[in-house]
């Protein structure tokens, strides 16, 4: 890998919880993202997986400075993004874009599609009306929509079509980097596949880099080159897709993969599953040491005392775990259950 396109290091984003009353004192902090580091090469897709509360969406927005990062560094082509003034930042926005999860909320209901997709062109280019219309028509057909429908309003489109409109808007200025924030999780499966195929095709054609945020491992596996797994604001494992899906060393990653039901009654009922206990703890008071330890069947005193660093336990994979799972080790149900009794 040459010079990375996007370089994130030690990214932290906390949200203050304000008390009631006139002064609105800050009473607590939610640590949505605590010390995230990764990089993305040009033309590459990094999948960012996590459950709710893992801070994956916050991370995506913080990288684009839609949420101002609390600390840490974000470099785009070696340039520090967090230090840019608002004018320079606006310039940079042409090159980094975002597609949102909810195709219903992410399009302004009062604007026709032509205006929605054309907005980045109005803001950043000096195109006249004619040129803009031509460009918008091109974009719409690129994402598989009929250009004649450009004067319709968002509510006249289906969820999948709206998501395509959102994608057309994001790629209007030929960005180098696009954050895809759960772009298909609000869509029906039959429609989801079409949008995933589209995203892949656009990447092949335009060489964009994606940060693909999702909670669905199977979707992430389908689109990513590399994958990072987040838990409570931290990356617990990151690496090549193949390595991660085949030889993951982190108990959480293993559990997450095991939890995805397989659409095949025979396999689903015979496969070995790991069932985690409990829910994700609150990010207001995350557990000490390794944040996953409260649900982990391999946890020891060491895990409570010391937060594990990302270390290469298996080739091509960085894992933050004191007790990593060996590449050939098979975790069985019995393993996970015995630990619970000890708890």
């Amino acid at each position: 890998m040459s010079e990375p396109l996007v370089e994130v290091s030690d990214l932290v984003k906390t949200f203050p919880i304000k008390g009631d009353g006139f002064l609105q004192r800050v009473v607590d902090q939610v640590q949505a993202v605590s010390g995230l580091s990764f990089d993305i090469a040009a033309g590459e897709t990094l999948g960012l997986v996590g459950e709710s509360g893992s801070g994956k969406s916050t991370a995506g927005r913080a990288i684009l400075r839609l949420h101002e990062p609390t600390s840490g560094s974000i470099k785009f082509e070696g340039r520090e993004v967090t230090e840019l003034d608002s004018k320079a930042m606006q310039e940079l926005r042409q090159r980094m874009q975002i597609v949102f999860q909810d195709p219903y909320a992410s399009l302004n209901p009062k604007l026709p599609v032509n205006d929605i997709v054309g907005e980045p062109l109005v803001i950043h280019t000096k195109m006249n009306r004619k040129e803009r219309e031509r460009k918008v028509a091109q974009l719409l057909s690129d994402v598989g929509l009929q250009p004649e429908h450009g004067n319709r309003y968002p509510h006249e489109f289906s969820g999948g079509q709206r998501q395509r409109i959102g994608i057309a808007r994001a790629i209007a200025l030929d960005p180098d980097f696009v954050v895809l924030d759960e772009p298909v999780s609000a869509l029906d499966v039959s429609v989801q596949a079409g949008v995933l195929n589209l995203l892949r095709r656009l990447q092949d054609e335009r060489g964009m880099a994606y940060l693909f945020i999702a909670h669905d491992l199977s979707v992430v596996r389908h689109v990513s080159h590399r994958v990072a797994v987040m838990y409570l604001g931290k990356i617990v494992e990151i690496g090549e897709r193949k390595a991660l899906f085949q030889t993951s060393a982190h108990p959480y990653t293993r559990a997450l993969m095991s939890a995805v039901p397989v659409a095949d009654p025979h396999r689903e009922r015979t496969r070995e599953t790991i069932t985690l206990e409990g829910d994700v703890p609150s990010p207001i008071n995350p557990p000490s040491g390794c944040r996953f330890r409260t649900r982990c069947w391999r946890a020891t005193d060491l895990c409570a005392a010391e937060a594990p660093e990302l270390v290469e336990h298996t080739p091509g994979l960085l894992t933050a775990c004191h007790h990593p799972i060996g590449p050939d080790e098979v975790v069985t149900r019995a393993d996970t259950n015995s630990a619970v009794l000890a708890d």
């Binding site: 839609l66 606006q90 999860q101 909320a105 992410s106 399009l107 302004n108 209901p109 009062k110 803001i123």
Partner: peptide
């Protein structure tokens, strides 16, 4: 999200208020 989208596109305050919020 559409307001956030407008910010992500680099739209200024005036544009966001008049074009995206007031009509709604």
């Amino acid at each position: 999200e559409f307001v956030e989208a407008a910010r992500a596109l680099g739209a200024g305050h005036t544009r966001i208020i008049t074009k995206h919020m007031l009509p709604n």
